[in-house]
Design a protein around this nucleic acid. Structure first.
Lengths: 93, 93
DNA sequence: AAAATTTGGTTTATAAAATAAACTATACTA
DNA sequence: TAGTATAGTTTATTTTATAAACCAAATTTT
């Protein structure tokens, strides 16, 4: 049995990546609302995905307010596809 | 977004349950080999699944050797189906 | 205008989970 | 009979997830 990529096999990170796979880009606030996570938890998990090169994170300002925008990278998309494929094998989907 | 049942959303427990969904019953040794897990880890995770009522565990002896047999319960099967359904929503499968 | 609240986060601390290491008991093997 | 294997359990350690505390700037309330 292949192992399920531990970086993706996590409640919140999987939710984030699932969203990012469908929307081209999403900002911190949007992800926080959609996933109903706390800001702290989301911040940490975005860092992990970013450090792994699965997502890119761009921090900018709109007026004086910070804005953090996230999107999948090619690496992330590939990892996600593989994760889904492994899961299919597990669950026979 | 519905939450993914944390009891099932774990590498090893998911592997175990995925196997048990297909085989009616399986013993400790078989599960250990199939999942390539350590005995300690498997023991702990089987306990958790058992405590949650997701699987039933019967311990017996074959001669003087212990034999631990596991199978899904109705509760476990239901939880698994729901987990898969939630996952489908996440991943759009 | 000062005080409190909200927004958009990060950092650090705590709780929970997974994993590994150590141990038990019996059996088998050289 | 000393050593190794089988079939596990228990305990300790590491990793992960989550929550709590904090920061800076802007907005709202009194």
């Amino acid at each position: 049995m292949k192992e399920l990529d531990p970086l993706l096999h996590s409640q919140l990170r999987l939710a984030v990546v699932s969203i990012l796979m469908t929307v081209d880009e999403a900002d911190f606030v949007f992800l926080k609302e959609k996933t109903e996570s706390t800001a702290g938890n989301l911040s940490v998990q975005l860092d992990k995905l970013s450090s792994a090169g699965y997502i890119s994170v761009e921090k900018s300002f709109v007026g004086k307010k910070p804005r953090t925008r996230c999107r999948m990278t090619a690496t992330g998309r590939k990892a996600f596809e593989e994760y889904v494929e492994t899961l299919r094998e597990y669950l026979k989907l």
